[in-house]
Design a protein around this nucleic acid. Structure first.
Lengths: 146, 146
DNA sequence: GATTTATTGATACTCAGTATCAATAAGCAT
DNA sequence: ATGCTTATTGATACTGAGTATCAATAAATC
């Protein structure tokens, strides 16, 4: 669950350290991405942002998303319905699970994935620099509600 | 390497079995997807198709891509640059590697991934029905050329 | 507080993807 | 083979995500 794993301060520091000015929109959007249980598209993030800051510009949100992605704070994922959704990047590489019933995202231990990657690197000869594993299915609570 | 793994006949049979009429565009597009070493977007597939069939309509290609995706013959992947690229679905679930230097796709043995999924299913309690693993890096031949 | 300049938001724009509809051609019946 | 029915096609117009522009705004520094 993103909200538990993400430290908003760290994100603000990362932006600050990269020489960006600290603004209200930034904080709003960081807050939105850091605390959403769902992968969000830029468009969705814009709508959420306008609830607290009605004048927030669309372009601004797209720029911010690009910035956060470049800094590695959020990462693009195969969305539940579409391919332009973002989740916070966690300190350790973790595996992403998305529930096809409620749309919520969960993060699973990635050690087995790390092992798998090293193993594949050895057997294929390719040099692997990045990976993206997404699991889809029905989460525990949706199973109980069914 | 898609070209080695994909049987064009099987794809045509799948379309036939689903009650679709057999047309020239279909064959053209199936051929394009089945033999491309690169993940292709619908737009790219359209341009390739027009090389052999100049009058091929854009909408037709999008419709065909949707059809092939619904039949599970091709599958959407995180593209090298973007998220709307397609690779042929292989008979067995395989792991996708995309070279960030030449853009070529390669498929790796998926047994370790299957194991990983079962393991994650047990430890998380989520019911996993689908997965998408993509590896990015530098392929063997690009390493040699560097 | 004044100045500099990065950031913002409104507008206009581009381009991927979709809906429409008349023209075409696949499949079937004869 | 020929004609008939209707799925499929391709041209056009449209939608909507994402981008470029630029004057207005507001951080940061002095």
């Amino acid at each position: 669950m993103p909200s538990k794993c993400i430290n908003v301060e760290d994100w603000l520091n990362a932006l600050d350290a990269s020489g960006f000015r600290m603004t209200a929109v930034q904080e709003t959007l960081i807050d939105i991405f850091a605390h959403s249980d769902f992968p969000l598209s830029a468009e969705q993030a814009w709508h959420v942002a306008r609830q607290s800051r009605p004048k927030t510009g669309r372009a601004t949100v797209y720029r911010m998303v690009e910035k956060l992605e470049n800094l590695g704070l959020i990462r693009r994922v195969h969305g539940y319905q579409g391919c332009s959704h973002f989740v916070p990047t966690l300190p350790e590489l973790m595996m992403l699970f998305i529930c096809q019933s409620c749309g919520r995202a969960d993060y699973l231990d990635s050690q087995p994935l790390q092992d798998l990657i090293h193993q594949s690197e050895d057997s294929s000869g390719h040099h692997i620099t990045d990976s993206r594993l997404q699991l889809f299915g029905v989460c525990t609570s949706c199973q109980e509600n069914a």
